[in-house]
Simulated assay, not measured.
Amino acid sequence: MSLQNSITHDFELSGIAPLESASPSQISYIDQDKYIPALADSKAGAVLIRASLQESVPPHIQPLIVENPHLAFALLSQLFAKPCFSLTSHPPRASNIHIGANVVIGENVSIGEHCIIYPNVVIGENVSIGEHCIIYPNVVIYRDSVIGNRVRLHAGSIIGCDGFGYAHTNDGRHIKIEHNGRVVIEDDVEIGANNTIDRAVFGETLIKKGAKIDNLVQIGHNCVVGEHSILVSQVGLAGSTTTGRNVVMGGQAGTGGHIHIGDFVQVAGRGAVGKNLPPHTKWGGHPLMELDEWMKFFVSLRRMLKKSAKPKE
């Protein structure tokens, strides 16, 4: 994809970043009009943008005009992709830890004291693990992940894998967006078996302190799980979902992307969250309703079904 404008000045490009955190040596992109206001305060050196929005770019940011900024961003992200794992194992920089058989540890990994790493765990480059953690068999921790103190990662969980993100060409091909961010798991978190927690596109996917996550949960890129929240088995959070503290989501509940769930919200099992939810509320059903309304609806529906099933005299 070619740029349609002349470069006004040269600078060394160090990476890609969102508008709000980009530095003068980084590039960002805008694909929707709603992000235009963020340009004024951005320190990005350049921005990928459509020609129709070029006049919105302030003088301190270099506009790079492309037909499809999202696709251009996907192609650019591949230039900054890092290897996730080393092909050789390196001894950890820690003492007083227990490491099982067939554990693979990448370069520049730190593991705190009193940790137990069970067999067949794989730890990527530049990972940091705090003290008193238990990493159960067959866990995989991708590069740059940060694990706090007293964290338990149960068997088969994957921390920091690629998020599910693609840009699409006019002829229908799917171009992979490399996810160059990381996963951060704070203190006293427990993550069940066979979870997948995707790393961020840039920035971080964050699991805050005290969160408890059941088995078979999927957490998408750039999500934030609030302090002391509980996600029950088979919950799915789409990319950039954020929750407040002490949120409880029942089994098989899920969210759309870019949704915020307020503090102390409860979502019943199989609830489908498609909008922001205010704090201290309870919800259920699909389409989602406040819990009391959903329960009344369900009772009424059962009565209607029973009535319709009675044989006619």
Rank of each mutant, 00 (worst) to 15 (best):
A155M: 05
H154Y: 14
G163V: 04
F85K: 03
I97K: 08
S157L: 04
E125G: 02
S128N: 12
P83L: 12
D162Q: 10
R143I: 07
G112T: 05
V121L: 05
L79G: 14
C133P: 01
I105E: 03
P92A: 10
I111S: 11
C133Y: 00
S157P: 05
H114L: 13
R152I: 15
S110K: 12
R152A: 12
E131I: 06
V103D: 08
I129A: 00
A81H: 13
V127P: 00
R93L: 13
I129Y: 00
D162F: 02
C115Q: 05
V103W: 04
I141C: 06
Y142A: 02
I141F: 00
E131P: 06
A94K: 09
G165V: 05
E131Q: 13
I99Q: 10
D162I: 02
A101E: 15
V151D: 02
E131C: 13
E131G: 07
V127M: 05
T88Y: 10
K82S: 14
K82Y: 07
P92T: 09
F85I: 12
A94Q: 11
V127H: 05
C84T: 13
A81K: 15
Y118G: 08
C84L: 15
I99W: 10
S95C: 14
D162H: 04
I141V: 10
I99E: 14
E131N: 12
S145P: 06
A155W: 04
I141K: 06
G148H: 02
S145G: 07
A155E: 06
Y142E: 12
E113T: 13
Y142V: 07
R152G: 05
G165Y: 02
I111P: 06
V109L: 09
I129W: 00
V122M: 06
V122N: 10
V121T: 00
N96P: 09
P137S: 08
S86L: 05
I159P: 03
Y118M: 15
P83H: 12
G130D: 05
I129H: 00
A101I: 12
V121Y: 02
N126R: 12
G106T: 07
I97T: 11
V109G: 01
F80K: 14
L153F: 02
S95V: 14
V139H: 03
E125K: 14
A101P: 07
G106H: 08
N96C: 07
S157N: 03
I134Q: 13
I117N: 08
C133N: 02
E107T: 12
L79K: 15
G124I: 04
S128C: 13
C161L: 05
S89I: 06
V122R: 10
G112A: 06
R143V: 04
I99G: 02
G156K: 09
I123V: 03
I147M: 04
H154Q: 14
S110Q: 14
S157R: 03
I97H: 07
I135L: 09
F85S: 09
S89G: 09
E131W: 03
S89P: 06
N138Q: 10
